[in-house]
């Protein structure tokens, strides 16, 4: 019931943003509204992927700038937020892929780098806590599985919307989540 209410509210907000965007004089208001409603969700989505705040900040800013510049071409076929997620997700995946390919060296495993960032970003007393261990487990997953896990576990995004964000079938997403879930479970049992 609450989820349905939230979805309706999100649709109303999206409409308002697009309406305000259509008029030159209210465009800044549209932007403020867009940021107000989506900045936190997008930031945490990106932060969970790249861990480091500064990198997440850059990617979130880039995502909003890209979205803002492309808003005039936005088709009303999907929700604004799934479109924003798609932009941010693609930027995250590209960013992580570039990190692996740095200096033209063979594919570089960035898990230790991400773990180091996790350690640096977390409070000093958090090392033994479950949320820290859960992140450690997630950093061992392939990027796309981690994405699926984050969207499903933390954000409780329905598979239908995830499918729109990631451009993958619902069946494949369910399988991916299942694999990720099992790997995380095993890691937590062992550590």
């Amino acid at each position: 019931m609450e989820a349905r209410h939230e979805a309706r509210h999100a649709i109303a907000i999206d409409r308002e943003i697009l309406m305000l965007f259509a008029e030159e004089s209210t465009r800044e208001r549209a932007f403020r509204l867009l940021m107000k409603h989506y900045q936190k969700r997008l930031y945490w989505h990106v932060r969970k992927m790249v861990i480091d705040h500064d990198e997440a900040d850059d990617l979130v800013q880039e995502s909003f700038i890209k979205a803002w510049k492309g808003l005039s071409n936005f088709r009303d076929e999907s929700a604004l937020y799934t479109w924003l997620y798609r932009i941010a997700t693609n930027l995250c995946l590209t960013h992580l892929a570039n990190k692996r390919k740095r200096f033209f060296l063979p594919i570089h495993d960035i898990t230790p780098d991400l773990e180091a960032q996790l350690k640096a970003s977390s409070a000093s007393d958090s090392a033994g806590r479950i949320e820290y261990k859960l992140q450690q487990a997630l950093l061992r997953l392939p990027d796309k599985q981690r994405l699926v896990f984050n969207l499903r576990y933390y954000e409780e995004m329905p598979y239908e919307e995830m499918s729109q964000v990631l451009g993958t079938s619902e069946g494949a997403l369910k399988a991916s989540y299942h694999h990720a879930y099992k790997k995380v479970e095993n890691f937590l049992k062992q550590h």
């Binding site: 800044e28 932007f31 930031y43 945490w44 969970k48 700038i65 970003s121 806590r129 479950i130 937590l188």
Partner: peptide, 23 residues
């Protein structure tokens, strides 16, 4: 898995300043 919390936080005041920075 026992929690949905994250072990890291956003810097204080980050979300207040972000819209102005991006705008």
């Amino acid at each position: 898995f026992g929690t949905k919390a994250l072990p890291f936080e956003a810097p204080y005041g980050y979300f207040e300043n972000l819209p102005n920075k991006v705008w």
